[in-house]
Amino acid sequence: MSDTDSQTLTPALIYRDPKAAMAFLERAFGFETVMVIEDPDGGPSFHGEMRLGGSSLRIGAEWSAGHASPLSLNGKNTQTLAIQVETDVDAHCAQARAAGADVFAEPETQFYGDRTYRCRDPEGHIWVVAQTVEVVTREQAEAASGLMITGWS
């Protein structure tokens, strides 16, 4: 399956309207569409693959009772997405908002050294976008947060 599967972990998101979702993800976050598989008879099965940097994403429809968009669950998410960007998270946020993302936490620098914002896409999937703006040691992060940290490297 070419190099789209070269990465170990690929999240798969469920949407009521997967094609509209893919168009949004292209505009808002800069994902690139690499594959679309549809049922030639117009059936409900759909498989989309998108890529950002070296990472892949799969997009599917509500194809069984066990698969639902947050839109069908009052906005609840069982898993969420995190994107790590290398430059200007504030500009990233502006682009996402212009594309129709619901930004519910504006860009803010966190105690662990990342500047992050949070938003919902048009069907309610929650995304957090982060840019590392400061290198913070474990001791500094513990002192700033009052939390106990194991495995900080």
């Binding site: 599967d5 070269s6 990465q7 170990t8 972990l9 690929t10 999240p11 798969a12 998101l13 469920i14 799969r58 009772a65 066990g66 698969h67 639902a68 968009s69 947050p70 669950l73 609840k76 998410n77 069982t78 898993q79 969420t80 997405l81 999937h125």
Partner: peptide, 15 residues
Amino acid sequence: PAALGGVNTQSAHVN
């Protein structure tokens, strides 16, 4: 999903 009758809004594929 344990709180939603087993429904998933997103899943994970591992290659």
